[in-house]
Design a protein around this nucleic acid. Structure first.
Length: 780
DNA sequence: GAGTTTGAAACT
DNA sequence: CAGTTTCAAACTC
């Protein structure tokens, strides 16, 4: 049984919630995310664009459907008509709502036939639930904090909230958080704390809706929890159970135009309490982007949670957290590990999560049903939750796969200003996922979770391609979206109880920290892996991270991290692979080791007694913790990124050089090609803008670089020309019978040889042409 | 490639 | 926090 430690779970909200850093994300490193690399120049790209968001629509395809139309929306009480809604049928859509957030949870459970829609007459909040549990008391709307509690025993949550002085029964007009607590077991409440769109319908999310009204989706917890903690202010307490699924979606809008929105979904599943096994393919993607547009279109977040009774439980789950350039927060996604025996229900819950600066992408494959996850952002007025698997699929146009990952695709909806990302989890060979277009079969087999965030500057699948690869299930067929597997490659990221002594402080984990199961540990051990590690792991396509303990460094999965380090862009780091370390005594578990310090596994290094690999996960985990204890910023880039560009890059701590004059690579500032700043404690620093020494050095360096480039180009040209010349002359020489020809060929070859050596003398490049001419003459 | 220099990291 | 030691990279020969 995989149990998420309470401590960890409790830590999540705080870490995830921080939206302070989100605004800077778009500026920090656009290239790091797949979103940025979108081929289209369409300015309508949701994540990065200024698409105005007037309202937000959140659709969760799960056991329940929650719809919170704007206040302007037509309010209606629970209707029976909704009860018959098919799980695959489009969730209640409120197109009229343009200014208020709409939260829709679409029932994804095939077996679920009960749908209940409830509308808050006061706030216009409509909640429709359709769940396998057939919620007789689908939910409770708490006006006080805008919580929608979906549960038979919603009162529990209410009481819990009340106990904390935050009565859930009252919808708080100012509520900015969304707390969804899924039913992990009977008695477990689902609480949705809906973001408040403002007292005035139609103007929410507009420019006028600024910080004060910024709705923030904090936590959505689905799963068993008896001790639901109330949501206080922006703080949402994550629930903990024996199995936890946590999906966090952070959305933040610029203060100028829209209130920051954070959306965090935490799903806790108690395998014991519920008969159906729930496996979650956590897909964490996206980074919160700042929205500059004054007008905000409706934000739609659709979370589809596939349920299939026929599905087999997936033993392994792996969650990869994709770090962003300057990720400062660590998001932990916990995935319940279904027991191998019971597999009544497999829940594929790919969720795109935008966390402050980190993106978690987890995708889980099911053995039987393909899971399509599309992250889309609806356009504006039409809050059509993009149904996965063809509900809205007909509109989808596959633009480009997020990466080489065949299971991840970017989807562009014609006319839509948003980009969609579809994540398809593994399916059996018989199941063929349709990349686009309405596919009823896909819906039947898989219940997609779609997270649509229009106007919410949420960079959707920000997960790097490598990440996606790793997370993606291993495709067994050539079909891009056809994946055959009986196991999920995703592993539990959070150790239940093991390694409590080294339970890391998740607030200080390295950027993009990922918890991965320790090799050989099965479900017992989990490793805290910095994002870079994850990236490395994810490098090889189709790496199987099944529940088996085969996940080891020996698989050759370690590759050079492509994450931005020390202020360098991903492209820079990619183009310039990290140098192999030569550690001998540190075991590569101290910051002496650049690999370790950069959050990378040692790969192709010259180190001795290296522990910086998955085979020594425990030691490495301890080392990470030690480093973090010593310096919480240990794994953060030392070179902060300037707001205006590289010119503002500077060392976070400053150097302490004494002898190098800060003009040698001993100096970290100089090495990073930045000037020393006031925070440096260097002595005799010459690494400042006006320094003549520095300028001279730079000029020399530039000149040397130019020379090297020229020589390289010349060598290349020479080689090709020589080869070409030999190709042309050899037949003649070989065929020649006269002494003169033979002699000439000998001379010729000698001349060629001389020419080559002559050329390689660095100052005689131009003479090569002469040599060639001479060679031709000799040949004649 | 061996030895030296250097400064960050680690330690006290 | 300061001083010292350790360490590995940078540098020199």
């Amino acid at each position: 049984m995989d149990v998420v430690s309470p401590e960890l779970n409790s830590l999540l909200p705080d870490e995830i919630m921080d939206t302070e850093d989100i605004e800077d994300v778009p500026h920090s490193q656009p290239g790091t995310t797949a979103v940025h690399s979108e081929p289209s120049d369409d300015a309508s790209v949701p994540m990065e664009t200024d698409t105005p968001v007037a309202s937000e629509n959140v659709t969760l395809c799960s056991d329940a459907v929650l719809t919170e139309p704007t206040k302007a929306m037509t309010t209606s009480t629970a209707t029976d008509s909704m009860l018959s809604a098919s799980p695959r049928s489009p969730p209640p859509v409120s197109n009229s709502s343009t200014s208020s957030p709409l939260l829709t949870i679409k029932p994804a459970l095939a077996t679920s036939t009960t749908t209940t829609k409830t509308t808050d007459s006061v706030t216009g909040t409509s909640v429709t639930t359709s769940g396998l549990q057939k919620l007789t008391t689908p939910f409770t709307i708490s006006p006080a904090n805008r919580q929608i509690i979906l549960n038979k025993v919603a009162s529990q949550a209410s009481e819990a909230a009340k106990s904390a002085g935050n009565p859930p029964q009252v919808i708080k007009q100012d509520g900015q958080k969304l707390l969804v607590t899924a039913i992990g077991k009977s008695g477990q409440p689902i609480v949705l704390q809906l973001p408040h769109t403002g007292s005035k319908p139609g103007i929410s999310q507009t420019a006028g809706d600024t910080k004060s009204q910024a709705p923030q989706f904090k936590v959505v917890t689905i799963g068993g929890r008896s001790d639901l903690k109330p949501v206080v202010g922006n703080q949402v307490t994550t629930l903990q159970t024996q199995q936890l699924k946590t999906v966090q979606i952070a959305k933040k809008t610029p203060a100028s135009s829209a209130a920051p929105i954070k959306f965090i979904i935490t799903k806790t599943v108690n395998s014991k309490g519920i008969s159906a096994q729930t496996s979650m393919p956590p897909v964490i993607t996206g980074r919160v982007l700042t929205q500059s547009s004054p007008v905000m279109p409706p934000r739609t977040i659709t979370l589809s949670e596939p349920h299939n009774t026929n599905l087999q439980s997936i033993p392994g789950k792996k969650i990869a957290i994709s770090p962003l350039k300057t990720p400062s927060k660590v998001t932990v996604v916990s995935v319940a590990s279904p027991t191998s025996g019971a597999s009544q229900k497999s829940v594929a819950l790919p969720v795109n999560v935008a966390l402050g600066q980190q993106i978690l992408t987890v995708q889980q494959s099911t053995s039987v049903s393909p899971v399509k996850v599309a992250t889309s952002q609806s356009t504006t007025q039409n809050i059509k939750p993009v149904a996965v698997g063809g509900v809205g699929g007909s509109q989808f146009k596959t633009i480009i796969p997020l990466a080489t990952q065949p299971n991840v695709q970017q989807i562009q909806v014609p006319g839509s200003r948003f980009h969609y990302v579809r994540l398809v989890t593994a399916t059996t060979a018989s199941s063929t996922g349709q990349p686009s277009g309405p596919s009823t079969s896909s819906i039947q087999t898989a219940k997609p979770m779609v997270v649509s965030t229009a106007a919410v500057r949420m960079s959707v699948p920000v997960v790097p391609a490598q990440t996606m690869k790793q997370v993606a299930p291993k495709p067994l067929t050539s079909g891009p979206q056809v994946v055959t597997t009986t196991q999920t490659q995703q592993r539990l990221i959070m150790p239940a109880t093991p390694l409590p002594q080294i339970q890391p402080n998740f607030t200080n984990l390295p950027p993009g920290t990922v918890l991965t199961p320790a090799p050989g540990g099965g479900n017992v051990g989990y490793a805290v892996v910095p994002a870079q590690y994850v990236t490395q792991i994810q490098q090889p396509p189709f790496v199987t991270l099944a529940s088996s303990s085969s996940f080891s460094a020996s698989t050759g999965i370690q590759t050079q991290a492509r994450l931005p380090l020390n202020g360098l862009s991903a492209a820079e780091t990619t183009s310039r692979p990290r140098k192999p370390c030569n550690c001998t005594k540190s075991q590569c578990l101290k910051l002496y080791c650049d690999c370790f310090a950069n959050g990378e596994f040692c790969n192709n290094c010259n180190c001795n007694n290296c522990f910086n690999n998955l085979e020594h996960e425990t030691e490495r985990l301890k080392a990470i913790k030690t480093c973090l204890d010593r310096n919480p910023e240990a794994f953060k880039p030392k070179i902060g990124k300037g707001k205006e560009g590289e010119s503002d890059r500077r060392h976070s701590k400053g150097c302490n050089c004494k002898r190098s004059g800060c003009l040698k690579n001993y100096c970290e500032c100089y090495e990073a090609k930045i000037m020393c700043s006031s925070i440096c404690k260097c002595i005799g620093c010459k690494n400042f803008e006006e320094s003549p020494e520095r300028k001279t050095l730079m000029h020399l360096a530039d000149a040397a670089e130019v020379r090297v480039q020229q020589q390289t180009a010349a060598k290349t040209k020479l080689s090709s020309q020589i080869s070409d010349l030999l190709m042309r002359t050899t037949p003649v020489i070989s065929s020649g019978s006269g002494r003169y020809l033979k002699h000439s060929s000998h001379i010729f070859q000698h001349k060629i040889k001389s020419a080559k050596s002559f050329f390689y003398s660095k100052h005689m490049i131009c003479t090569f042409v002469e040599s060639l001419a001479l060679a031709k003459v000799l040949h004649k």
